[in-house]
Design a protein around this nucleic acid. Structure first.
Length: 894
RNA sequence: GGGCGAAUAGCUCAGUUGGUUCAGAGCGCCUGCCUUACAAGCAGGAAGUCGGGGGUUCGAAUCCCUCUUCGCCCACCA
């Protein structure tokens, strides 16, 4: 046992404590055990990420669950790792290159990928070290990376199997194209953002017949938000039942500026009330238009913009517009249309456009060849799992979001035109049309033995992360890990990736493993600033968890997050007020520390070994705290099982601070000091209760509890992290003791209130006479004399002081009993009267001031209403104060 | 356009099946205390028409309707 410093210094113990856990190997999961497994896979952070508060919250919650289940005796596996995060990481390295004035094309694919690996090897995995700093008890021996060689094998295996099963195909579709990242994106990666925009009404010249190139031309007006796409138009369509346009069915119009001629057709997709009721169809640059043109049949799909979203160098595009960026082109086109008199009007129009989720560039719909996964067959079991209750969400409402998405799921574009990621295992024949899909590079084309070249693209990052729960365990091999730890149990993540990741993991889990990868999805909230904005790098409003750990300790950080975040609710943190934000956790850690110090200081001589408390010697306060302790155990266990982690934190907090520190410890102090009667019992109970509190608190505050645990007496107690969660039993539950102690508390509270009110000096004893409301209460009070006297010994209260009748104050207790607190001997009545009279005088002066103000017509009529109200409020509160003072003076008889 | 959520003390938020325990917590504020575990503390205190309105009920912060204000998600009216 070592001595403890008066103030808790987390930095002095945390690193060493973590090392002891690591050395003991308790974070490692064993496969050869009878214990029931409990598995969480970490949401793998980007390999180049540094820890932010969101990670802090997410991983703390996981660690709380893991440590809780570990202490409950389950074989826990918390599997850590990182994600290669295709676009994000590639962008990061591209930005680095840019500083050197280079692009990835300049350095070439191989050198670029080499460069990314270098970066990953140099700075990657920083975040994992930071997770250790906040106490995460992952099984680090099983750390995985989504680009590990074994992991890549799983990814290829999945690609090949899906292909064999007919669930994977290469198709030409209009996909979301990010011209900045120069890659296609899935629907989920192209997020909606509202934009104030314009609707342009453009006049297409009507060609009456083949030879109608005369001046009797009329126009058809079409509304569009993207005039720059019009060179890719293949027809105009209106609703087949729209009377207005019937006469033009089959007619030909000319695309403005380019003069390309296109027909007018019909489609039921058209909304008659929108725009002019006439829609331009651009199959290569709009997904809907693609479908319309496809349904009509027989149209080309001209691509009129290149990969950088510049107007294509193509005969369809007027020469002066070629190579222009799409938005510059739009401006130019509008000018030209205006000049030509073909811009009928421009309406303001706000709508949602899609942008790249990584760089926020507006995406351009673009026709291209991509690999797609047929999702509907995969979605079916994932939906069923939710509906059958095999998979549940906390909070429940997210389940509906999950369900809705799966019901309207569309095929998943998994090709990315990037260099960083899993290269698509498909090889194209140079001679024939055959595509060879295989685990390893084929020597030649399967069909014709021609030479082959591999697909240039890589796979969507999420195409590897959706395998995380089983690919990390060695799949497709039938490893011992896989057998032992699949399916897992809880997934803790943010609601923002329900579609990207959660739903897809469930689909992959059922498809490849035949079971859900986890039973419960716990969605944590988002960490926000005081203006409720999410933390972001660009806003600079975030809090670096490492700063907090350094300043207040990991436990303060963790406690604040856990206590402050009910499931699914956001956590507010103010980077400009770290002290305020983390006060609860920091103060609580210090409180624990000092309870520990008191115990250590008083336990050295003759502590009763924990667990051998003799019921016969227990006093009321002992029975009370043991009962409260037992209830806290039951309740905390229950709340933890229901994922109400904030309730767990707050309940233990109040038990430790209010019950243990403020009442029990104050009550037993007299027994603790020296060799008093009952001292050993008090020490035994105190030790037991505190030890229990440490166990309960350990999952939330692992460092300080481990250190304090180490300081408690008892040989070979081992690590708290490897110890057990207190079992919820009824052993010490004692309603009677709780009720009776509650009466003591109310009595003591009443006396304290009187003391504060009348300025009784600290340390000065006052007496109290209780007139119990009924015989039950009378008995109870008589039985509690002992306890009350104990409290009296700390200098606040005695039951025998004071004269009946004399000067004193009455207080009514919740049970109806009344307390009389004689004050004659405790205060200098004369002086107190003088003081109170002085106060009263001052109040009267203030009151007459405000009264005359309020009587002043000018004031009432001219001053702003809220000022008048404020004065009225003042008057009211001063009048109340006057009443209170008068009452006090009456009590004191002056 | 559809859906979900939120509105409770100055601030950030709890409040589970409608009922003594419901009007709470932390921070902040006011008063008094350096009491031998802790001033990162102790004791006491002020502070809220539970967003507005209506309804159900013996009883509503809680259930229903409606309005207002915010936030999020989904969506092929270009």
């Amino acid at each position: 046992m070592t001595t403890l410093a008066p103030q808790y210094d987390p930095s002095a113990i945390e690193a060493g404590t973590y090392r002891r856990w690591m050395d003991s190997g308790i974070f490692g999961a064993a496969v050869d055990t009878d214990r029931r497994p409990y598995v969480i896979v970490i949401p793998p952070p980007n390999v180049t990420a540094v820890l932010h508060s969101g990670h802090g919250l997410n991983n703390t919650l996981q660690d709380v669950l893991i440590r809780f289940e570990r202490m409950r005796g389950r074989e826990t596996l918390w599997l850590p790792g990182t994600d290669h995060a295709g676009i994000a990481t590639q962008n990061m390295v591209e930005r680095m290159l840019k500083k050197e004035g280079k692009t990835r094309q300049d350095v070439g694919r191989e050198a670029f990928v080499e460069r990314v690996w270098e970066h990953v090897h140099r700075t990657g995995g920083t975040i994992l070290e930071q997770l250790k700093a906040i106490g995460c008890s992952c099984d680090w021996s099983r750390t995985r990376f989504t680009l590990d060689e074994e992991y890549s094998l799983a990814v290829r295996k999945v690609f090949v199997s899906l292909h064999e099963q007919g669930l994977l195909y290469r198709g030409q579709r209009v996909i979301h194209w990010c011209p900045r990242c120069r890659t296609s994106l899935s629907d989920e990666e192209a997020e909606f953002v509202d934009q104030d925009d314009h609707l342009y009404y453009i006049k297409y010249r009507l060609i009456e017949g083949d030879d109608a190139d005369d001046e009797s031309r009329s126009y058809v007006t079409v509304a569009t938000t993207r005039p720059e796409t019009m060179f890719g138009d293949v027809c105009l369509v209106f609703h087949p039942e729209d009377e207005r346009f019937q006469k033009w069915l089959g007619a030909t119009v000319e695309i403005p500026l380019s003069g390309v001629r296109i027909p007018i057709r019909t489609s039921t997709v058209v909304e008659r009330d929108f725009g002019t009721g006439m829609l331009k169809v651009t199959p290569a640059h709009d997904a809907n238009d693609f479908d319309i043109a496809d349904a009509l049949g027989g149209f080309e799909r001209p691509i009129t913009m290149d990969e950088d979203a510049r107007m294509e160098d193509d005969p369809r595009v007027p020469e002066q517009l070629r190579r222009l960026d799409r938005f510059d082109a739009r401006k130019k086109i509008l000018e030209l249309l205006e000049t030509a008199g073909q811009l009928e009007r421009v309406d303001p129009y706000s709508h949602a456009v899609r942008q790249c989720y990584r760089c926020e560039t507006i995406v351009e719909p673009r026709l291209s060849d991509q690999w797609f996964v047929k999702m509907r067959p995969l979605a079916t079991p994932a939906l069923k799992a939710y509906r059958d209750g095999r998979l549940r969400f906390v909070p429940e409402r997210w389940g509906k979001v999950y369900e809705h998405w799966l019901m309207q799921i569309r095929d998943w574009n998994i090709s990315r035109q990037l260099w960083w990621g899993h290269r698509i295992p498909a090889w194209y024949c140079e001679q024939c049309d055959h595509i060879t899909v295989a685990m390893e590079e084929p020597a030649s084309c399967e069909a014709c033995q021609g030479s082959v070249r591999q697909d240039e693209d890589v796979l969507d990052t999420w195409f590897s992360s959706w395998l995380w729960p089983f690919a990390t365990l060695g799949w497709p091999d039938e490893t011992a890990d896989l057998k032992a730890f699949y399916p897992g149990h809880t997934l803790v993540t943010g609601p923002d990736i329900i579609f990207f990741w959660v739903a897809r993991m469930v689909m992959a889990g059922y498809h490849f493993m035949g079971d859900t990868p986890f039973e419960t999805v716990y969605l944590n909230g988002i960490v926000r600033d005081p203006l409720h904005r999410a933390f972001s790098k660009t806003l600079g409003n975030g809090i670096d968890p490492m700063d907090v750990v350094e300043k207040f300790g990991s436990d303060a950080f963790r406690f604040t997050l856990v206590a402050g975040a009910a499931a699914g609710t956001d956590v507010i943190m103010d980077r400009n007020d770290l002290d305020g934000t983390f006060a609860a956790g920091r103060n609580f850690a210090n409180k624990l520390w000092n309870i520990g110090r008191l115990i250590v200081a008083n336990l050295s001589d003759g502590a009763t070994p924990t667990g051998s408390i003799d019921p016969a010697h227990l006093e009321l306060a002992d029975r009370w705290i043991l009962s409260r302790c037992q209830r806290t155990i039951s309740s905390a266990t229950d709340q933890l099982e229901r994922f109400r982690l904030n309730d767990v934190a707050n309940e233990i907090y109040h038990f430790v601070w209010d019950d243990l520190a403020d009442w029990y410890i104050e009550q037993v102090k007299p027994r603790l000091y020296g060799n008093r009667e009952g001292g050993d019992t008090a020490r035994g109970v105190l030790c037991h209760v505190f030890e229990t509190a440490l166990r309960l608190l350990h999952p939330i505050m692992p460092f300080i509890t481990e250190r304090l645990w180490e300081g408690l007496p008892g040989t070979q107690r081992g690590l708290l992290a490897a110890s057990t969660w207190p079992s919820p039993t009824q052993e010490f539950e004692d309603d009677e003791a709780e009720n009776r102690f509650a009466r003591v508390q109310s009595l003591v509270g009443a006396v304290r209130a009187v003391r504060a009110e009348y300025g009784v000096a600290p340390g000065k004893l006052v007496g109290a006479r209780v007139q119990p409301a009924n015989t039950d209460a009378l008995e109870a009070f008589n039985a509690e004399q002992n306890t009350i006297e104990r409290l009296a010994k700390i200098g606040e209260l005695s039951m025998d002081g004071g004269e009946t009748g004399g000067v004193g104050a009455h207080q009514v207790l919740p049970d109806g009993s009344s307390v009389f607190v004689p004050l004659g001997d405790a205060i200098d009545v004369e002086r107190e009267c003088k003081r109170l009279n002085g106060e009263l005088e001052r109040l009267e002066k203030q009151l007459s001031g405000v009264a005359s103000k309020l009587a002043n017509e000018n004031f009432i009529s001219r001053a702003p209403a809220e000022v008048v109200d404020r004065e009225r409020e003042k008057e009211r509160s001063w009048q109340e104060q006057r009443e209170a003072l008068a009452a006090k003076l009456r009590v004191l008889g002056c």
